[in-house]
Nucleic acid binder design. Sequence first.
DNA 1: TGAATTGTTGATCAAGCAGTCAAAAATAGT
DNA 2: ACTATTTTTGACTGCTTGATCAACAATTCA
Lengths: 167, 167
Amino acid sequence: MARPYSFDPKAALEAAMHVFWQEGYDLASLSRLQDAMGIQRGSLYQEFGSKKKLFLKALNHYVVHFVDPGIELLTQSGGSGRDRIKRFFDMVPTDESRGCLLCNSAAGVAGTDDEVRQIISMQLGRLRKAFDNALVEECEDQNKRRSEAERLTQLYIGKRVEARTIL
Amino acid sequence: MARPYSFDPKAALEAAMHVFWQEGYDLASLSRLQDAMGIQRGSLYQEFGSKKKLFLKALNHYVVHFVDPGIELLTQSGGSGRDRIKRFFDMVPTDESRGCLLCNSAAGVAGTDDEVRQIISMQLGRLRKAFDNALVEECEDQNKRRSEAERLTQLYIGKRVEARTIL
DNA sequence: TGAATTGTTGATCAAGCAGTCAAAAATAGT
DNA sequence: ACTATTTTTGACTGCTTGATCAACAATTCA
């Protein structure tokens, strides 16, 4: 027995994700966010608590929708490991001038917020592990495999950050 | 016939560079900058014009001191190309939690400021060209060389951005 | 010494920020 | 229709931001 929601929290979160993706954490103002989300200030705070909490949920939304599919591709068993890695990099957009929210946040807000830093570190760790998994067939040396997975992770980050510099 | 400077502009610029490096363009407030530079607001504006102009000069200072030496190493003729590339990557710090100002700016302010974007793009282009130059002996195919130079540039960016996520 | 010139200072400005809150609106149960 | 409960609204708060400016200090040249 209460007033029902007039907005879809998932849709609002997605809109917030795009603002953070486009403008970065610092430049994404509450005014800009509430405009994009189509809700008022109070509703935003009632639903999400704070700007940082909203960002963390938006980041999680991004991971689920844009990182997990890649990790799944690397982890599932269709084709050889090298093949899956090739398909992964074929999927990486090079014309997305916003880059990758995870990588942008690594180079940005992760430097001043320890909680964000840990989350980014953990998510990049998942990607590294997925690369490692895809290399398991062709490389038995655990150390070589680890360092190759590391290289591939860095290559992914580099590709997406560099994409931001070419309009 | 006028009052002389009471501060060293080069030293002030270097201090500003470190603030931008540590905190990023947006979070580097004028108050924080003038504290680090040891000068007052008015002097800062008289000498550097605006926050953005100060940043551009600080970025240039960074390039001269931290990027150019690497480019020189890749370009000069000591040892084989592969050897110079190996030495280049041996020099890349992996424990610098601030990462690289150029890469941080690519993932950050380059997204909202076109002039910055172009400068970063140009500087990364210099690095790519230096890699290409170092590959000239061992690879005659111009296309393969270009794409390998691109890979190495992306690897550099990835290494330095990833370094920011591990304390 | 005094006038001219330039650097330095710190108070001040409007604008924008993240976050709060009391009042209004919309529902469900009685 | 009335009450209880929850959401929504937008004005408001105190604070920080980048930038400006008039008064003041330090120097050079005459």
